[in-house]
Design a protein around this nucleic acid. Structure first.
Lengths: 228, 228
DNA sequence: CGCGATGTTGAGATGCCTCAAATTCTGTGG
DNA sequence: CCACAGAATTTGAGGCATCTCAACATCGCG
């Protein structure tokens, strides 16, 4: 069985999700769960497997998506260090339709449904963090709806690049495939747009890598914040 | 100042949102708030007004939407009797971008941010209801993203009609304008599709009214549940 | 009765997907 | 170290779904 270090706790303490929580509470969270490592490209949960466990990524990256009947995949969420996955799972009918896959080797803190419910009961302060997080997720989903309904592909790709830049810095380690699954378009359209941006000197690219030079040029014009 | 009746409480007791809560708790909720009536077409909250109040619709109907710069409007949510609006508002940075408007004369139970937070603290059991509701909202938003990304307009309109039928029965009292603002399309496309459905005998229409005869024909094929 | 909102239908414009072919990169195994 | 397979990128051309615009019919309300 793997173990966690004080350093892992430090990282969580500084993270946005855990804002306002004491170090003691966060330690207790680690105690309530166990650390698991998934190799790259593992499916952490699949559709219909009644996944009720809550995960916190310690290192690595998790992609939450859904594969549709037409063979297309849509990415809802990218979960990075110190971010939670399936926060609401233990409270919901577990027949949800998302799947989660690791994009790198990923260490997670895994907490069973029961332990999670107990933990929340014993530390109700964390409810504020949960509700804040979910609220942001909801706003993000609504923003994406707005974008899909009324923005053109180029604008959406711009937004996605800007958002990913905020979250992951530069360079971005994503292929056009992955960008397009977030923006809701095809790899071809993504590459065409990125070609233009390259000509304008706003970004430069290499296979699987995107450097953003002029992040201001990607800035969103409309209200509504994406999180991804 | 308006008042509530035992009958109002009864209605809430039977509603989906309040499942598992005792009559006493629901009574307390009424005591913590006050009853307000808004005339038809009133803006209950507008963009940028830092609306932190929580509402429960007692009778009438609320439309939660956002108007974009291009003059188009997109409907996120329809709130009917015994459903909540702005459940997360008191927990979030209040600069959200939604607006809520009454579609009929609407009586609401209005609870200030402070009273709401107190109430949740004193009756933590309601947290389960809140999380369940928000979770469904999140799943619904994700389903709509999926639909927008890969379904054609006709399918989306079908889905919207089916969903509205589940929620409001028949006939539906909506114009093509309102349907299109939910489905993410134009009134023209909506009317063309409804014209086809009419020819097939699945629905019949009158100005502002839609009767659904064959609800099975509208049934969704894919996973993922809409709520609206 | 007339005005504004809604419904109806058509034709044209267009953004984007789809398909296809060629090129470049990366990692793997001989 | 090289050859090769597979994946990612690049670019072009064609087609299609849907929006847009426009004209007209209809309904309901004051």
């Amino acid at each position: 069985m793997e173990n966690f270090t004080e350093k892992d706790i430090d990282v969580f303490c500084r993270a946005s999700f855990f804002k306002g929580l004491s170090r003691e509470i966060i330690s207790n969270l680690f105690v309530a769960g166990k650390v698991v490592t998934f190799p790259k490209n593992t499916f952490v949960s699949s559709i219909g497997d009644n996944f009720g466990t809550v995960l916190f990524v310690i290192s690595g990256l998790l992609r939450v998506s859904v594969g549709s009947s037409s063979g297309r995949r849509i990415t809802f969420l990218l979960v990075k260090t110190a971010e939670p996955y399936n926060l609401l799972g233990p409270y919901l009918d577990p027949s949800r339709f998302l799947e989660a896959q690791t994009l790198e080797n990923t260490r997670c803190l895994e907490i069973t449904s029961k332990n999670y419910l107990d933990f929340v009961e014993r530390h109700p302060i964390i409810i504020h963090n949960i509700l804040r997080w979910i609220g942001m997720g909801l706003d993000c989903a609504n923003s994406r709806l707005l974008d899909l309904m009324e923005k053109k592909v180029e604008d959406r790709i711009l937004r996605v690049l800007s958002t990913l830049h905020n979250k992951f810095g530069s360079p971005l380690l994503f292929t056009s495939q992955e960008i397009s699954e977030i923006a809701g378009t095809t790899p071809e359209s993504t590459l065409r747009t990125m070609g233009l941006l390259r000509q304008m000197g706003i970004i430069s690219t290499q296979r699987g890598k995107i450097w953003i030079h002029d992040s201001a040029a990607l800035k969103d014009t409309e209200f509504g914040r994406l999180t991804i």
